[in-house]
Every structure is written in C-alpha cells, then in structure tokens.
C-alpha cells in the first residue's frame, strides 16, 4: 500500500505535473471557465451571469436536497464542487437572461435525474449538464433557440426576462439567432457569399461568437496545462470536426459552412474542452478517448449540416456517452507481457 501520495509531497520532481485532488480538480475547471464567462458577459450582458449564478445555486440546493433524501453526508459531496460545476456549465450554455424556471427545470434534469438518481458523482453515464440542456432544447425550443444579439452589459429587460415576466412575443423581438442558426435557416439557393452580404445577422454577432470561442479555448489550454484534462478528447474532437466540415464544405461550399465557421461559432470549443472532457461520462482508456472524441466531432458536423438542430454539441456528447460502454469494451489496452493474440478485447 502506497504510503506516499502525490498531493502530499512538495519535494517530488513530479510536483505540479500530476493532477490535483478531485475537489480542487473541479474547482480548477470552474476557474478555467472564467475567460469564457467573462467574454460572454462582455458580449451578451449580465444575463449570462444571472444564468450561471442561478444554475449554480439550483445545483447546490438540489444536490443537498437529494443527498439529504438519500441520507448521504452532504458536506463532503458539496465540497467536491461538482454540482456547482454542472450549474456553471449549464448556465453558460443557455441563452442569456433565461427565465429562472427554465434554469430550474434544466438543473433538476441535470443534477437530480442525470446524476444523483444514477448514484451521484462518478456513477452518471450521461453528462449531467448536457442532459439538462437537451431536455430544455426539446421541451422549450422557443426559449432555447432565441439568442439575443450582442448588447450592452445591462439591458432594460434583464429583470423581467429573468423573472419570466416578459411575454414570449417580446422575447421574440428582442432576440436574434445564433450564427449557426441563421446560416442553417438561410434561403434555399442563396450562396454563402450572398448570405454574409445580406446582413441577416446583427452587426458584430459573428465577431462576438469568435471572441467567446477563443476565450473558451484559453480556458481549455489552462486545463491542459494544469493536467486536469488530457489532450486526447479535445484533439480528436476538433480534428475530426475540421475534417468532416472540410469534406462537406468541399462538396458544396454554398450549402455548408466553412470549417473555420464550425470551429469558431456555436459551442464547438466550449464543448471540446469543457463538456466532452467530463471524465465520468467519457471513455476511459486513451485509445477509447480518441475514438470518443472522433465520434463527437463527426456527430456535431453531421447533425449541424444534415439534422434539424442548429447546434449539436449536446446531442453529439449524449450519443457518444451511450457508446462509452461499447468503446470501453473494445479499447482495453494490451498489458505488458501479453502477446497480440492472447489479450485484446475482453469478450
């Protein structure tokens, strides 16, 4: 039994090269979301922060409630910050200034159903934040697909929006569409060039999305640097996404958006570094992680280009979560000392 542990030693040559303990691991992920959150707030106003604060609060409350009902110790579980993180991730995925009840419903799906009912941290087969997101997208498409154009920090309607007091028609007039949505909805026969020239998107929308994507990328690099995530999933995801997008783009440059567009708008980079890398619901071996990432990248482009939804990170991640047991089964590494014939995949 090892009496030494990486987290207790400060005289190790490896100090700082191993992952921090689970609880601070979660907190580091939260820290790494800050650039993305700040960029989003800068572009879309305080509605982003209200989403995140509400979702995080719901997360902690719901987790405590379920733990109480399950008669599990509450403090240690809250200490790992995983419910907080789920809240931050779901909050960052929702359209700015979403009504409180929408966030509440999403968090119930995420924390209560997707996580705690499966046994809590470490036992959930699906990414909790994405379960919440997918449920909201399917159940409340009106709220979920309307994304306000870039706006000042504090808008006049922020409070009524959060309180859910704004009539849906008003929301409609306030909101625009995401670039992905707009491009998907462009008129048949309109060339890509004509679309961009038409000014369907409000000024600065595309730039805002690119800026936010790069901010998420910065957070992702921090995670990689701190060894909190490994490069396998993001690299495989982004690589396969670019290849798929290029293939579509080469087939029909007017119908399908460019690889760079796919990379820098929507939730691609956020998903690649913060969602797909959730270790609990991802494949476990290194080879498995590569396969898992490739699957998500391919699915994102297939759903975006051929499916009915403008963005696809949530569905792609959930679909690949489904495949994890299979991937794990067929990617068991061959231990040292086993020849190719004898080890391989367990039945």
């Amino acid at each position: 039994m090892s009496m030494l542990h990486a987290s207790h030693v400060n005289d190790a040559p490896s100090a700082g090269t191993t992952a921090p303990p689970t609880a601070s691991l979660m907190r580091w992920v939260i820290v790494a979301t800050l650039p993305g959150i700040i960029a989003m707030t800068y572009c879309f106003g305080l509605g982003v922060l209200s989403n995140i604060v509400l979702a995080a609060a719901f997360g902690v409350l719901l987790e405590s409630g379920v733990l109480y009902l399950r008669k599990h110790p509450i403090v240690p579980a809250l200490n790992d910050s995983s419910a907080l993180l789920t809240g931050v991730l779901l909050g960052a995925s929702l359209p700015p200034a979403s009504p409180w009840w929408l966030i509440g419903v999403g968090m119930i799906a995420a924390v209560v159903i997707a996580k705690q009912l499966y046994g809590g941290l470490g036992h959930n087969p699906f990414n909790p934040a994405m379960v919440g997101y997918a449920l909201l997208l399917v159940s409340f498409p009106t709220y979920m697909t309307l994304w306000a154009p870039p706006q000042p920090l504090i808008s006049d309607t922020l409070w009524p929006q959060i309180m859910g007091a704004l009539p849906i028609a008003d929301i409609d007039t306030l909101s625009g569409a995401t670039p992905l949505d707009a491009f998907k909805q462009k008129a048949q026969g309109l060339s890509a060039y004509q679309f961009w020239a038409s000014g369907t998107l409000a000024d600065g929308t595309l730039e805002a999305w690119r800026f936010i994507s790069l901010a998420w990328l910065a957070g992702g690099v921090l995670l990689l640097f701190k060894r909190i995530i490994s490069w396998h999933i993001p690299a495989a995801l982004l690589g396969s996404l670019l290849i798929m997008a290029t293939l579509f783009y080469m087939a029909d440059a007017d119908e399908f958006a460019s690889p760079v567009f796919h990379l820098l708008t929507g939730a691609t980079l956020f998903g690649a570094f913060f969602i797909a890398t959730d270790p609990v619901s991802a494949a476990t071996s290194r080879r498995g992680k590569l396969l898992y990432g490739v699957g998500i990248g391919v699915l994102i482009i297939v759903i975006r280009n051929l499916g009915g939804y403008p963005d696809a990170v949530a569905f792609a991640v959930l679909l690949m979560n489904l495949c994890v047991p299979l991937i794990d089964l067929y990617t068991v590494p061959r231990p040292v000392g086993h020849s190719k014939g004898t080890a391989g995949a367990p039945r």
Binding site: P76, L121, S285, P333
Partner: peptide, 26 residues
Amino acid sequence: ELPSGPQEAPCIRCGACESVCPVQLL
C-alpha cells in the same frame, strides 16, 4: 513526511491512474 490520506472520494474516471500504470492496465 507521510501524512495519512484524506477521506476517499468517488472515482471520477479521470484516467490519471491509467496514464501511470507501467503494465498498461486500466
């Protein structure tokens, strides 16, 4: 110098163990 470990937390399948295993187990 050799403190006893804190309480065990659930496995989150982060794969840190896998990446250090010298016989390539999971």
